[in-house]
Amino acid sequence: MIEVLQLPFMQRALLAGVLVGGLASYYGVFVVQRRLSFLGIGLSHAAFGGVALGLLLGTNPMWTALPFTVVVALGIDAVTQRGAVSGDTAIGVFFSVAIALGVVFLALKDTYTADAFAYLFGSILGVRPVDLWIIGGITVGTLAVVPLWGRWAYATFDRDLAQADGVPVRRDDALFSVFLAVTIVAAVKIVGIVLVAAFLVIPAAAARLTTSTFHTMTMVAVILGIATAVGGLAGSYALDIPSGATIVLTQAVVFFGAFLLRGGERG
């Protein structure tokens, strides 16, 4: 097991898994408490449109998926803020448009693209140095906005209360959407579009079950996100099964464990 860590692709996989596991879980606590799971699912599927655009243009799909998904996230945010339609409706519209665009982009490319499937199910072992740089950039950006945790948490608890207290909730929401979008794109590379929601929701939900304050929930979620990425990656190597799926199954084991643990003490 140790010697496998000598392999550069395995080192990159581990680093990417640790960073994305931690990042997704950090944003996941807000996603879970704000009941935004559907936004996570919508943005990960929207990323497909961006990936397809990259494949069509022949560039690294991450470079197109990042701005594409950010635009979709801001579009959902803008439409929802206007109050004309509800958030889940806006997500439903934007994500189907993004997928439809993706299908058209892929059809426009005259050669068959197996690559698209790598993004549906992720390829943590196929993480390239440039992907790591992108993930590293997102990590640095996240560290820079960690001081906003108190404002985001306040608005998560009660938006009106936070706004009445001078928190610029609209600007904060837009910023949160941007960071969520880029984190989701990074996670898409690793676990794939269909499983990204797990990265956002499961560690945070498990943390929610085992903690009683929002700051401990945040810390526990990040730790679980990192630990399950490492554990899942090791498990997938040992059992020779797909990595992204193994990480998600590891998260699920932790979640149900927390659920059973909590079930004992709760009436």
Binding site: Q33, G150, R151, Y154, D158, D160, G166, R208, H215, M217
Partner: peptide
């Protein structure tokens, strides 16, 4: 400001003191 209590999100993990301290901090206390 004392809002209507029916708007409270009861699933939010917090102690009473955390909520009281938002009155001083203007932020959720870490």
């Amino acid at each position: 400001y004392v809002p209507q209590i029916k708007t409270l999100d009861r699933s939010f993990p917090a102690r009473a003191a955390d909520l009281v301290l938002t009155g001083l901090r203007h932020r959720w206390p870490f």
